[in-house]
């Protein structure tokens, strides 16, 4: 696929359809891949990669890139296309300045996920069928791809591209996903268990803002948490309350707009399962106001921008079982 992508990118640069390409650039190891803009065929040859570690979602970069001169070529994986649609709908990107090539994805992993599985000292990675063969400083290790994938890929919601100008390879289908399993499990817990669970997770937050800065739905010109008068601008959480507040407000602000791309959890240096907050909102919206997938198209209005006179009352929260 990498070869096909480079070839196609070169053609599009050559025939003037686009003047630059945003893609993944190889690093020092097999897994440390950086998003980069390529301006020429030479640059593409020198560094463009597409492999199992190209997890970064480029949609958000397009907010700035699409405002620059000329058209940019972007390669989008299926889940990235949902964010892309959402941004198009919100007029945050200029669609006409972007040429989208959809590329297939079988799930993307990253160095940190491998390390959590106990594979350290990684010097090289090869893909052999359904497994990764990892060269390490301490010998060769093999791990099944299915075991090496992060949660967001194990519960992939769709392999179908919802926005593209052309496709490379076959398009997939919307998947039967089990992505709400963990949310349900939490809902079934007692209030105190949930509290302890979240305290355990959120107390690790260091307020690095990576989740916010990477999030394709967080595109405010000026974030409320960058407002000095909020008292908590961009800074460390000085109290457990502030850890909670930051994540509640952030999740709330993207509710109905979050496409569940999972970037927040991918980038969190403390491995906080932030997607569980977003998925709770998605699940609630589905249950209360009907099935809704943000980014599925560019027309449907977001659930928090509309209402129905027959909507459930907030008391629905007490009426459901458990405590």
């Amino acid at each position: 696929m990498q070869g096909k992508m480079i070839a196609r990118a070169k053609e599009l640069l050559q025939n003037g359809t686009v003047n630059r390409v945003i893609g993944w650039k190889a690093g020092d190891f097999a897994y440390d891949i950086t998003p980069a803009v390529f301006n020429s065929a030479e640059e593409l040859d020198a560094g463009f990669v597409y492999n199992d570690f190209c997890g970064a979602n480029f949609s958000k970069y397009l907010v700035k890139e699409s405002r620059k001169e000329g058209k940019i070529l972007v390669f989008l994986k299926p889940c990235d296309t949902y964010s892309f649609n959402q941004l198009t709908k919100e007029h945050r990107i200029i669609r006409d300045n972007i040429y989208v090539v959809g590329v297939p994805c079988d799930g993307k992993t990253d160095g940190e996920t491998l390390k959590l599985k106990g594979i350290t000292g990684i010097t090289g990675i090869k893909t052999e069928g359904d497994s990764f063969v990892v060269d390490t400083l301490y010998g060769e290790k093999t791990i099944a791809k299915a075991d090496a994938l992060p949660e967001r890929c194990l519960s992939c919601k769709s392999k179908k591209h919802v926005a593209y100008d052309e496709l490379l390879g076959e398009d997939g289908e919307v998947c039967e996903s089990n992505r709400f399993d963990m949310v349900e499990k939490l809902e079934a817990m007692s209030s105190e268990e949930r509290f302890n669970f979240w305290r355990g997770e959120l107390s690790r937050c260091i307020r690095c803002n990576a989740c916010r800065n990477v999030c394709p739905a967080c595109t405010c010109e000026r974030c409320v948490f960058d407002n000095d008068n909020s008292g908590i601008a961009q800074k460390a959480a000085a109290d457990s309350f502030e850890e909670n507040m930051f994540h509640i407000i952030r999740a709330f602000h993207v509710a109905g707009r979050c496409t569940d791309c999972g970037e927040c959890s991918r980038v969190c240096p403390q491995n906080i399962p932030l997607h569980l907050l977003n998925r709770k909102f998605i699940k609630d919206i589905n249950e209360f106001y009907g099935e809704f997938q943000a980014g599925e198209d560019t027309e449907t209005r977001a659930p928090l921008n509309i209402f129905d006179t027959e909507d459930v009352e907030p008391s629905v929260v007490y009426e459901k079982g458990g405590n």
Binding site: V183, L186, E187, S191, E192, E193, R194, F195, N196, F197, W198, R199, N244, I248, A251, F252, A255, L277, K280, F281, D284, I285, F288, Y289, P303, L304, F307, D308, T309, D311, V312, E313, P314, V316, V317
Partner: peptide, 19 residues
């Protein structure tokens, strides 16, 4: 009507966080 949706979701989230 908008407030109703917002508060429903917010309260549900607070409940989810164990408040």
């Amino acid at each position: 009507y908008y407030a109703r949706r917002r508060m429903t979701l917010l309260f549900s989230m607070l409940d989810y966080l164990g408040i």
